[in-house]
Simulated scan of single mutants.
Amino acid sequence: MEGISHRMVKVNGIDMHIAEKGQGPVVLLLHGFPELWYSWSHQILALSSLGYHAVAPDLRGYGDTEAPPSSSSYSCLQIVGDLSGLIDHLGVEQMFLVAHDWGAVVGWYLCLFRPDRVKAYVCLGVPYRPRNPKMKPVETMKLAFGEDFYVCRFQEPGVIEAEIARAGTAEVLMKILTDRNPVPPCLSQENPFGIYPENLVTLPSWLTEADLAFHVTKYSQKGFTGGLNYYRALDLNWELTAPWTGALVEVPVKFVVGDLDMVLTTPGAKEFVSNGGFKHHVQLLEEVVVMEGVGHFINQEKAEEINNHIYD
């Protein structure tokens, strides 16, 4: 972490923590769930050494950034408002965008609402999906995958937080970060995270004890509600984005995903990405890279390759 500096900035009415290093054009790095700014450590160091100003915030609800309690405070308009305020605070008109998981979803909204602020977007793991005007997303997921699909299980405030507390913060984080099951994740009622004392999980080479400990410390202090509120605002986002139904993303995009990523292996996703649907909605899609044998947390698992893809 040598040389990475930290500060708090006031944006859109909240206090946001950012980690940053380097001078030059701004590269904004948006993390997912259950991650933090820290998941971009390799990219911050690499990009700053290449002449860029790498900036990785803890998004609203995460880490050292303020976490309003209500899920209604986590709409796409508010999150993009936070990022617009951050870009203003950095004193630039435009920046390069790199984002993963929920950060990638937020990244698509940023491209949709404020394309003038994004020079180009390197999206990791989550392709753009157009709004379905006929059905809300949570209902759609219930019909497709059942009541136990993880997004559905995350909806009721306090329920999954209590399950995480019972299973243990460290155990749950390790399970999520190391899971490579390519089927849509469902959480049973009895043991939602499938954690059994006799099944010891070993850390992969790309995830150190120090990496895990950092996340465990922050989530133990902050809790998971902020991150879970992004899932709880899915239907609210659907309501708010009605004016953008059918809108196209008009920003140059490079998309990188692992072939074992459960987002890509979800039924219909590969076809959407490869058969023209993705390109129709993201017309400046320049490249799709599918990395073999790579899971969901791609920027950590294949840090050097991802650094090269971003720089290219």
Score class of each variant (00 low, 15 high):
Phe154Gln: 06
Pro204Phe: 01
Trp206Pro: 01
Ala213Gln: 15
Gln155Glu: 09
Gly246Tyr: 10
Phe214Pro: 00
Lys175Met: 04
Val249Thr: 04
Arg180Asp: 00
Arg166Gly: 03
Leu248His: 12
Gly146Phe: 06
Ala233Phe: 03
Tyr219Glu: 02
Asp148Ser: 12
Ile195Glu: 00
Ala162Glu: 15
Ala210Asn: 11
Leu240Val: 07
Tyr150Lys: 11
Ala242Arg: 13
Tyr196Gln: 10
Gln189Leu: 10
Asp235Thr: 07
Thr208Lys: 06
Gln189Ile: 06
Tyr230Ser: 04
Ile160Tyr: 02
Val216Tyr: 01
Glu147Tyr: 08
Gly194Ile: 00
His215Ala: 01
Thr169Glu: 04
Tyr231Pro: 04
Ala165Leu: 14
Ser220Asp: 12
Lys175Gln: 13
Glu163Val: 09
Asp235Gln: 08
Ala167Val: 12
Ile164Arg: 05
Val216Asn: 02
Leu173Cys: 05
Ala165Met: 12
Phe193Gln: 00
Arg180Leu: 08
Tyr150Asp: 09
His215Phe: 07
Thr225Ala: 14
Asp235Ile: 02
Thr178Phe: 00
Val201Gln: 09
Ala233Met: 07
Glu147Val: 11
Gln221His: 12
Val172Glu: 02
Lys218Glu: 14
Leu240Phe: 11
Tyr231Asn: 10
Val249Ile: 15
Asp211Asn: 11
Gly146Val: 06
Thr178Trp: 01
Glu198Lys: 08
Val151Ser: 07
Val249Met: 04
Thr225His: 10
Ile160Ser: 02
Ile160Phe: 06
Arg232Tyr: 06
Arg166Gln: 15
Trp206Lys: 02
Thr208Ser: 15
Cys152His: 11
Ala242Pro: 00
Cys186Asp: 03
Phe193Leu: 04
Gln189Phe: 03
Glu209Gln: 15
Asp211His: 06
Phe149Asp: 09
Trp238Arg: 09
Pro182Tyr: 06
Phe224Ser: 03
Val251Phe: 04
Cys186Lys: 14
Lys222Leu: 11
Leu236Lys: 15
Pro182Met: 08
Pro204Asp: 03
Asn199Ser: 08
Glu209Ala: 14
Glu209His: 12
Tyr219Pro: 02
Ala167Asn: 10
Ile176Pro: 00
Phe154Lys: 05
Thr217Arg: 12
Ile164Leu: 05
Ile195Gln: 00
Leu207Tyr: 01
Val251Leu: 02
Ala165Arg: 15
Asp235Leu: 06
Asp179Ser: 13
